[in-house]
Simulated assay, not measured.
Amino acid sequence: MRFELDRYNGVVIDPTSLPADINNLIIDLEELITYLIRQRKSLAWISVPIASAASIPLFINAGFTFHSCLRDELTLVRQPEYPTFVPFVPTHTIGAGAIVLSDTNEILVVKERGSKGFKLPGGHVEATERIQDSIQREVLEETGIDAKFESIVGFTSKHPYQFGKSNLHFICQMRALTHAINILDVDEIEDAKWISLNAYISDPTNSLSNREMISRVAFSSGLMATDVSGNNGPHRKHEIFMAVPAVVAHL
């Protein structure tokens, strides 16, 4: 079994090096635990691919616990006996909704299958996906409308959401580039339409919180996606959103 040392005095095990024979894996684990204790190492990590799932009970017996998981791998961690900080697992999912306005101040809304009223198009932000790219994709899938991201005009938080996590939902202001509706995601979306802003806000069959929120931020300038010259290197931010300043202070 191979492993590398990390900069926090921990150990990261190479899952491709796990022996296929169970007895050999048990021996390797015993040697690893002895090494961790004698060298006073901190955390020991391994991300076990689903193809090696049979090894998971052996790691559990060696003192490892569940940390986080993806569709095709489970990450395990072993803590030493002395107190050690374990980086937290992801606590939030992220979603985005779109206020898409036409040149005549009509708003684009969708109706999900099984629901009663209409809502803003939007959905889940996928891993590694930028918010601005995600919402453009969601609007296209749910309505067939090409729309350009302009700003974030609000966000909401919810807990609990799914699987005990919290959720952050960003409300994005967008500008429609096309007008003809053509629902692509017909499994999820039952209907999509343009409707006057006033008609949507005054319709009690639509969510009250949605109507109140839209009435407040539909024409806000919001936080703009911003490029910062110093945003580079190992700590580079995926996206930066800022309010448009009245006066720019030069460094």
Rank of each mutant, 00 (worst) to 15 (best):
M174P: 12
A62F: 14
S196N: 13
R236D: 11
T205V: 12
I37G: 12
L140P: 02
S102I: 07
Y82G: 06
D133Y: 00
K158R: 02
G95Y: 08
F155R: 15
L74Q: 09
I94H: 11
T84P: 08
L101S: 03
L184Q: 15
D6Q: 08
P245H: 05
L197F: 09
N210I: 08
F219D: 15
G233E: 14
M213W: 06
L58G: 11
Q39E: 14
V77F: 03
S102L: 04
G122I: 05
N61K: 15
L58H: 13
N61E: 14
M242D: 08
P204R: 09
F149P: 05
F170W: 12
T93R: 12
R175W: 13
L76T: 03
F241T: 03
T84H: 04
A51K: 06
E4I: 09
R40V: 12
E150K: 12
E31A: 07
T91E: 15
P87T: 10
T104C: 11
A20F: 13
T65I: 14
N198W: 06
I107L: 02
T84G: 10
D203Q: 08
H67F: 07
T75Y: 11
L25G: 01
A51C: 06
I214G: 04
S221C: 14
M174F: 06
S42D: 06
L120K: 03
F85E: 14
I152G: 00
L208W: 05
F85M: 13
I99A: 00
T16S: 08
Q173P: 03
V247A: 07
H179T: 12
T84L: 14
L120P: 05
S221G: 13
L251C: 05
D187R: 09
S52E: 15
I33T: 09
N9K: 09
E138F: 02
K116S: 07
L76E: 05
R113Y: 14
G97A: 15
L76V: 10
T226L: 03
D133G: 04
F170A: 08
E81C: 05
I50Q: 14
T178Y: 06
D203H: 11
